[in-house]
Amino acid sequence: MRVDLFDFDLPPESIALRPARPRDAAQMLVVDGERPFCNRHVRDLPDALRAGDVLVFNDTRVIPAQLEGTRGEARIGATLHKRIDLRRWQAFVRNAKRLRAGDLIAFPADVTAVAEERHDDGSWTLAFQGDEPVEVLLERAGRMPLPPYIAGKRPTDEADATDYQTMFAREKGAVAAPTAALHFTPELMKALGTAGIGSETLTLHVGAGTFLPVKADDTAEHRMHAEWGRIDAATADRLNAVRAGGGRLIAVGTTSLRVLESATGEDGVILPFEGDTSIFITPGYRFKAVDGLMTNFHLPKSTLFMLVSALMGLERMQAVYAHAIENGYRFYSYGDSSLLIP
Results as ranks from 00 to 15, higher is better:
Gly122Cys: 02
Leu339Asn: 06
Ala233Val: 11
Met317Asp: 04
Lys172Ser: 12
Ile281Arg: 00
Tyr332Met: 11
Ala251Asp: 14
Ala20Thr: 09
Val42Asp: 11
Met294Ser: 02
Glu116Cys: 10
Thr219Trp: 07
Ala169Met: 12
Ala91Ile: 03
His323Asp: 08
Met189Thr: 10
Val93Pro: 05
Val30Ile: 12
Gln318Ala: 03
Pro46Trp: 08
Met317Gln: 05
Pro147Val: 02
Ala109Ser: 08
Asp44Thr: 01
Leu257Val: 09
Thr185Val: 14
Gln129Glu: 07
Ile231Met: 11
Val259Gly: 02
Arg243Glu: 04
Gly209Tyr: 02
Ala251Tyr: 01
His41Tyr: 12
Leu260Thr: 05
Glu34Asn: 13
Asp217Tyr: 01
Gln90Leu: 06
Gln129Pro: 05
Ala177Asn: 13
Gly246Glu: 13
Val93Tyr: 02
Ala16Pro: 03
Lys301Gln: 06
Ala177Ser: 15
Gln27Ala: 13
Glu13Leu: 10
Arg100Met: 14
Pro36Met: 02
Val206Gln: 06
Gly284Leu: 05
Ala181Lys: 05
Thr162Lys: 03
Ser278Leu: 10
Ile250Thr: 06
Val111Trp: 00
Gly335Ser: 08
Thr70Asp: 09
Asp121Gly: 01
Asp7Trp: 06
Gly122Ser: 08
Leu10Cys: 07
Val175Tyr: 14
Ser278Met: 13
Ser302Asp: 03
Gly72Glu: 15
Ala51Gly: 13
Gly284Ala: 13
Thr210Ile: 11
Ala169Asp: 09
Ile281Cys: 09
Thr194Asn: 06
Arg88His: 05
Asp237Ala: 14
Asn240Tyr: 07
Val31Asp: 10
Thr255Met: 13
Gly275Tyr: 12
Asp24Arg: 02
Ala26Asn: 04
Pro155Arg: 04
Gly152Glu: 06
Met294Asp: 03
Arg230Glu: 05
Leu304Thr: 02
Ala25Asp: 04
Ala127Asn: 06
Met224Gln: 10
Ser14Asn: 04
Arg100Ile: 05
Arg248Phe: 07
Asp24Trp: 04
Arg243Gly: 07
Gln66Val: 14
Tyr332Gly: 07
Ser338Phe: 03
Pro178His: 03
Met306Arg: 03
Thr282Gln: 15
Phe92Ile: 11
Pro186Met: 07
Ala263Phe: 07
Gly209Phe: 04
Ala74Ile: 11
Phe184Ile: 01
Ala208Ile: 12
Gln129Thr: 15
Phe57Thr: 04
Ala127Cys: 09
Asp157Cys: 15
Met189Trp: 09
Arg2Cys: 00
Leu202Asn: 08
Thr303Ala: 01
Val62Tyr: 15
Leu55Lys: 01
Thr264Cys: 12
Leu340Val: 09
Asp47Lys: 09
Ala127Leu: 00
Asp32Cys: 00
Leu99Cys: 12
Gly52Phe: 10
Leu202His: 09
Trp228Val: 15
Gly52Leu: 13
Leu80Asn: 00
Ser123Asp: 00
Arg286Gly: 11
Asn296Leu: 08
Gln318Trp: 03
Asn58Lys: 11
Leu49Ser: 03
Ser278Trp: 13
Pro178Phe: 01
Leu299Pro: 00
Ala48Gly: 06
Ser302Gly: 05
Ala113Asn: 03
Thr295Pro: 08
Ala91Met: 09
Thr277Ile: 01
Val290Arg: 03
Asn39Ser: 07
Ser262Gln: 05
Arg230Lys: 15
Gly198Thr: 15
His205Ala: 06
Phe184Met: 12
Val114Met: 05
Pro213Glu: 01
Ile281Thr: 03
Arg238Pro: 08
Leu17His: 09
